[in-house]
Design a protein around this nucleic acid. Structure first.
Length: 585
RNA sequence: GGUCCUGUAGAUCAGUCUGGAGUGAUCGCCACCCUGUCAAGGUGGAGGCCGCGGGUUCAAAUCCCGUCAGGACCGCCA
């Protein structure tokens, strides 16, 4: 039907008779006997000189046969990759007419999201979306190549599985054959990939679809894809190596650029210095420890278990008072009692303090000097302090740091960072039971295992929170790209974990029985990881929303304007499934 | 569950703070003109439930309340 692709033709093709197919991108009609048609396919745009264009409109699908020639002197278009040539002596066949499109296909206008998604099949024609979908395919291709080269076997795992109470909210599918029972859609293939290890697969991977019924964000959809990895007889650093190889290969495949070093930071350092377990280390403004400075302070606002601060260079003049008030309000929304701010000035006041404004008047001159020194602040800077429980201080200042200094996530840099040594438990419930920070099969850190396995019984309460695990995350420009861990393969350790978590043996058997059963029959030591491919693809093409690399995404409320999902189903359908809809109260 | 921003012509926006005559602009669309444009150009034309509902007012796109939709974020996402 066609001999060539629009964007692949060049001066070397001059004189060739070709047939190209595509969409009418733009037409410039000069008279009854001269018009230019820009014909677009997925490779680019080609100018075709036609006799008349009265019966051609935007987005008509046409086939144009003609002869390639160099454009006449002085009419080349350097902005176009095919700008030196054109197709002439054209005969045009309309393959499919089109109504005027509901929105322009140019790259200049930001079209309303609902409109784009309702007509996604048109939106996808844009060069940007064509590039993104192809980049995403390139990511998958590179990953498959890298995993294959490292001896991994691609194994598919089921989509209809049993619901387990851990983790995110499940999407659920009613069973027809067993009314009242439900399948869950996988939040991840976690259990199955561990079972492949018991099954002797040795090295498993999958580009897996995962589903979680949690609120959507720029970097979160209900449905997403991850590179899921698990390997036997390996340690943490082996896994980091496998994943680094795959992600680096994908980066090169899409961007042609070396991703550089994948640096490492401990979870503890990430939290203390950046207030986040997914630190964006592309910029400074690190959180600085100020607690000792205020150990004996008279200033009541700083009489707290923890005081930290950040310094905004030039902030004293750059930030209007109204903006500062907004920041204070934001910090209060984030859970802080308040946000202390002060400007650094040139000439010290009567008590010798170079801090001014805000809470400056409550600080002694020694405290002021120490704060300035610790934050390395200069005149003209603004310093922000939060005093509270340590966790809260880190959290609030971490968010404030991002608010004040974060570059766009898609600024073209690739800052890969491994965060290692996550704590085994992230917090205690009101009843004092710990909550696993990864999942209950995560191996404790080698250096902390003795604490957990002590013959006197496990520690309790706050001491538990000091135990580190062999869990790790991969972060790119402040986005969590994925996480993984070394799994527990020792029965005694697993039993101790359940004991600490307050899960009785019979309950553990009920919830995770099939995995625990499997582990009775010879489980190899194993470890794994999962990489969010939507996020990776988005950042590699410079998008700040994963919708842009998903062919048919959902809106933030979880709807699909194209198919109108979710939608009610017929009563007969409900009846067959043994379901009845309860009207909202 | 919560906070914030945005809904005006097919599209993108201005007008809203400070209520007042007929809601404008650009692009697109339709017709005609135009032989080297490339975001072609010219002339003319059509096109509006100012998201929806209620309230205040002599008078509401504009103020107030509610609601729906989209977006960003907090919570949530083992």
């Amino acid at each position: 039907m066609r001999s060539d692709l629009c964007g692949r033709l060049g001066p070397d093709d001059a004189g060739r008779a070709v047939t190209v197919c595509g969409w009418v991108d733009r037409r410039r009609e000069h008279s009854e006997h001269l018009a230019f048609i820009d014909l677009r396919d997925h490779t680019g745009v080609l100018q075709c000189v036609v006799d008349g264009a009265r019966d051609l409109r935007s987005e008509y699908v046409v086939s144009i046969a003609g002869t390639v020639r160099l454009r006449p002197e002085g009419t080349a278009n350097p902005a176009l990759s095919t700008g030196e040539i054109e197709l002439h002596d054209c005969s045009v066949e309309v393959l499919s007419a089109s109504e005027p499109p509901p929105f322009p296909l140019d790259e200049r206008t930001d079209v309303d999201e609902t409109l784009r998604l309702r007509h996604r099949y048109i939106d996808l024609r844009k060069p940007r979306m064509q590039r993104n979908l192809r980049a995403r395919a390139a990511v998958n291709r590179a990953i498959r190549r890298a995993m294959d080269a490292q001896g991994f076997v691609e194994v598919e795992t089921p989509m209809l599985i049993a619901s387990t109470p851990e983790g995110a909210r499940d999407f659920v599918v009613p069973s027809r054959k067993e009314p009242g029972s439900f399948y869950a859609l996988p939040q991840s293939p976690q259990i199955f990939k561990q079972l492949t290890m018991v099954g002797g697969v040795d090295r498993y991977y999958q580009i897996a679809r995962c589903l979680r019924d949690e609120d959507l964000r720029a970097d979160r959809q209900f449905e997403f894809s991850q590179l899921d990895v698990e390997a036997s007889f390996v340690e943490r650093d082996d896994v980091l190596g496998f994943v680094t190889k795959a992600v680096a290969e994908a980066t090169v495949e899409v961007t042609g650029r070396d991703p550089g070093n994948f640096r490492r930071i401990t979870w503890h350092d990430a939290m203390e210095r950046f207030g986040s377990d997914k630190p964006d280390t592309r910029f400074g403004m690190e959180l600085v420890e100020l607690t000792p400075i205020f150990a004996d302070t008279q200033a009541r606002v700083f009489q707290a278990p923890c005081v930290k601060g950040i310094c905004l260079v030039g902030g004293a003049e750059a930030l209007a008072r109204s903006r500062v008030d907004e920041l204070v309000a934001a910090c209060q929304r984030w859970g802080a009692k308040g946000l202390a701010w002060m400007r650094v000035v040139n000439s010290p006041d009567s008590i010798g303090s170079a801090l001014d404004g805000g809470v400056a008047k409550f600080l002694s001159s020694a405290e002021a000097a120490a704060v300035i020194g610790a934050l390395d602040a200069r005149p003209g800077d603004m310093v922000f302090l939060v005093a509270d429980e340590r966790r809260l201080v880190r959290h609030v200042l971490g968010l404030l740091r991002l608010e004040l200094g974060r570059p766009p996530v898609n600024d073209g840099s690739f800052n890969y960072l491994w965060v290692v040594d996550f704590p085994l438990f992230e917090a205690l419930t009101a009843e004092g039971d710990p909550i696993p920070s990864h999942h209950p099969f995560t191996m404790p850190h080698d250096d902390d295992l003795w604490k957990l396995m002590s013959a006197d019984g496990p520690p309790a309460g706050e001491e538990l929170l000091d135990i580190r695990s062999q869990a790790y995350d991969l972060v790119l420009n402040g986005w969590e790209l994925g996480s993984g861990s070394v799994r527990i393969h020792r029965r005694d350790v697993q039993q101790r974990i359940f004991e600490v978590l307050g899960i009785a043996p019979d309950e553990a058997q009920q919830r995770f029985g099939f995995l625990l059963d499997a582990f009775r029959y010879g489980a190899p030591p194993h470890a794994g990881f999962a990489v969010g491919l939507d996020r990776l693809a988005a950042l590699l093409v410079g998008e700040e929303n994963i919708r842009e690399v998903i062919a048919f995404p959902k809106t933030q409320s979880g709807a699909d304007p194209l198919t109108e999902a979710p939608s009610p189903i017929a009563d007969a359908h409900l009846q067959e499934l043994g379901l009845r809809v309860v009207p909202p109260a």
